[in-house]
Design a binder for these strands. Structure first.
Lengths: 245, 245
DNA sequence: TAGTGGTCTAGACCACGTC
DNA sequence: ACGTGGTCTAGACCACTAC
């Protein structure tokens, strides 16, 4: 067993045994060097193992801390039921219980040329104009997701879909009123390590992956009304899909 | 901009520009040291950024290589349709096209005490006996998933469900014949960095996350017939769920 | 201001792959 | 045999946090 793995293993079992609880500070790099009689790079490598497992989180100038893990349960199918938004409730309100606070942040709506990746799904020409609604979701003050919804420009022009606050039931209720009610959704899920920009926007501690969800909303005549590109902090979410055999 | 970020950025854009294609070898650590006039630890940190983004993969003694990314598309709902397994087709055969080869590996069936985490979902007492079917799936020779299905012992005793090869339609077809046809499924998705054991079993290059899927199969009387714990190589999969509003 | 983690240097030995 | 990446040492300066 290599030195850095031994040190990582020792800290990991101490955490699992409850010697360090969520939010507790671990021994610092200097402590660990003295304790194990190794060079600083070696303890740093040990800590980097734990960071990359998402178990601990380093805060510059402060120390290394045990991470708390209380994910949101995102019920993929129920949350998008038409009865919900027809009744004026937002999609994301289904994800939280009453004791936690989910707020939406930095809403921006803009008319832009369609990104290449989206054009194919949306079924429009590359460079065609689309309306893009960007926003970020914070749970108890911590960013957990950022999202960018893309709508074909001719579908939503002069509708409340492109207003910063679309009102009760959100954009799906407004699309329905405009005669473009979504009747079917497809969610595509990928996961990978975040880019620098994503780390920044979601304030991710290094070592947590992100989940990428691309949701496509289809109307009754099978046209695409929305392509929503989401980036989720993987540690903050459990995704759930329930369906018949 | 920090040195290691500059070097990482330069390599990343070279890869995106196609100067290095999938499988190509990047300049080695010694080359990069000479090229940028920095210490070895600095180029290593640059490369570790790219590794943690899953863009490149280091092979000891050989070099650093651009990773190929050709994920499987796993259609979560269609693949579990009862018509499929009733017609004698396996669930996983829905995931691959004809040009790629998916093989099942290391099938083990054993009667064991139920793990604590599973007991709660399965609705049995802690320590009660369950039948566990473990196996691994390889795509074109590379492990992409390992899975462990848990069945309540009294439900499957003396049925082909516990035989190494359950036959056409797989265990769901056999459960159906035994009067325990699954009628509803729930899939729970988490994602995190792999443990050492998972890295080993799936032969993961460092820097790729794993996707954990826990599937629960319910019968018509709402009892749980199976809890399937899966570990997927995140880089090998795109998950897809399609459903009505 | 003292201590923390983040970055960086300049060496070293090793196991492993390729040739 | 040689070059590769993996591990490790022993220093250094910096920006940031907490007090």
């Amino acid at each position: 067993m290599l030195k850095y793995q031994r040190i990582a293993e020792e800290l990991r079992s101490a955490i699992e045994a409850g010697e360090y609880g969520p939010g507790d500070r671990l021994p610092g790099e200097n402590d660990l060097m003295a304790l194990h009689g190794v060079a600083r790079m070696t303890v740093r490598q040990a800590l980097s193992v734990l960071r990359s497992e998402g178990i601990v989180e380093a805060r510059k100038g402060a120390g290394v801390f045990v991470r708390a893990f209380r994910p949101l349960r995102r019920r993929g199918i129920q949350r998008l039921a038409s009865e919900r938004w027809a009744a004026g409730r937002s999609v994301w309100s289904a994800d939280v219980d009453d004791r936690r606070e989910l707020v939406v942040d930095g809403v921006q709506v803009a008319r832009e040329p369609v990104p290449e990746r989206i054009a194919a799904v949306l079924g429009v020409e590359p460079g065609a104009p689309v309306w893009v609604r960007r926003r970020r979701y914070l749970l108890d003050g911590k960013p957990v997701m950022s999202a960018a919804s893309h709508f074909p420009a001719d579908l939503v022009a002069d509708t409340p879909v492109v207003s910063p606050d679309p009102g009760p039931g959100g954009v799906y209720a407004r699309l329905a009123e405009a005669g473009h009610a979504p009747v079917r959704f497809r969610e595509e899920i990928r996961t990978r390590m975040p880019s620098a920009g994503e780390t920044d926007e979601l304030r991710l501690p290094s070592g947590t992956p992100v989940i990428l969800i691309t949701r496509t909303a289809f109307t009754a005549d099978s046209t695409v009304a929305e392509v929503n590109d989401m980036v989720l902090d993987a540690a903050s979410y459990i995704l759930e899909y329930e369906f018949d055999a």
